[in-house]
Simulated scan of single mutants.
Amino acid sequence: MGNSAGWIRKAVTCFQRKRLWILNAAFAAGLLVAQPALAICQLVAEAPFAPVMPGEARVWQASLQPDEVQVRYIGHSTFELQTPQGVRIATDYNDTYRPMQTPTIATMNGAHSTHYTFNPDPNIEHLLYGWNPQGGPMDHDITVEDVRVRNIQTNIRGWDGETRRLGNSIFIFEVADLCIAHLGHLHHRLTQDDLTRLGQIDVVFAAIDNSSTLRLDSLMHVLDSIGPALIIPMHFHFAGALQAFVSRASEAGYVVTRAEGPQRLISRSTLPTQTTVYVMLPGGP
């Protein structure tokens, strides 16, 4: 399964690179007209939304290139994604881990209180529940500016050990020629139907706690089945969880690298050719 997924990913990558080359050639020939940029890409040395503590240095991306997505790890399973057109997305939005700025889109999951809130910021334009509080399915497929967000629901276990149907969602973000999936509080291996609906995924945020979500054997099966280029671990609050996952990932032949900070710019041109685990430590809001 893993070899097949890897072959498919390489084939899709070649196709997308060829498509990008054609688009660039079209721009050069004057066949397509570029939209004016809203801002010049620059680095700002001080965050305008929070005081900088003595000795602290913060770098914020003022604007992004059309093929870039900025990812910042807030904590637990909450990430902030920023798109080239300035859409901000917060995953597993909750009362404990929140980005400094109000997100345009916030996704939530129903596992426990660090994955959702009953008191969301009223200024959030699109609040996407990963489960239906009234029971039954909860399907999303929206496009906001330059990002499409959709979900695939999965089951979870309750604290009593019983299955809660459709209690979790995998959220997929399609932006800047990238497909990014946040697995949420995943509790079981994916079916072939799940994988088909996912499509080709480039970047995966995966819970690696080896306890309240998936055990490592099942998690490695899921990651191998998806076949992403980049795996970003999350939800490693249990002692030894990160070390155990890194060991298993290395055994599986994945490259393991550690980030220098809590944020990273991701683009198709910078995706690794070999499946890579990119360990980011939470950086707060």
Rank of each mutant, 00 (worst) to 15 (best):
D121C: 14
E145D: 15
T154L: 07
Q153I: 05
L127R: 07
F173A: 04
A176H: 08
N151C: 14
D139V: 14
W131C: 12
T143H: 03
W131L: 05
H140Q: 05
Q101M: 15
L128K: 06
R189H: 06
S211R: 08
F118E: 15
L190S: 01
E125L: 08
T191C: 14
R164V: 13
N168D: 00
N155E: 02
V203F: 14
P133D: 13
N123W: 01
H187D: 08
D160N: 15
T154Y: 04
D141R: 13
D202L: 13
Q192V: 03
H182L: 05
T143W: 10
F118H: 15
P99S: 12
T154S: 14
Q134Y: 12
G161P: 07
E145T: 10
T196C: 07
R164K: 10
D202V: 10
G184P: 09
V144Q: 02
D160V: 11
T154P: 02
L128W: 06
T102E: 00
H112R: 09
E125K: 09
T196S: 07
R197Y: 03
Q153C: 03
A206P: 09
N132K: 08
W159H: 13
D202E: 13
R157T: 08
R150W: 04
N132F: 09
H187M: 08
G158A: 11
I170N: 07
P137G: 01
E162S: 11
Q134L: 08
T191A: 00
D202S: 01
I208A: 07
D121R: 15
A207P: 12
T107E: 06
P99V: 01
R165H: 10
S113T: 08
G110K: 06
I142R: 01
W131P: 00
E162V: 04
Q200L: 08
N132C: 13
I172K: 15
R197V: 01
R157W: 09
T117L: 02
E145L: 04
W131I: 12
H188F: 03
P103C: 11
W159T: 04
I172S: 15
V175D: 11
E162K: 06
N151S: 11
P99C: 13
H140K: 14
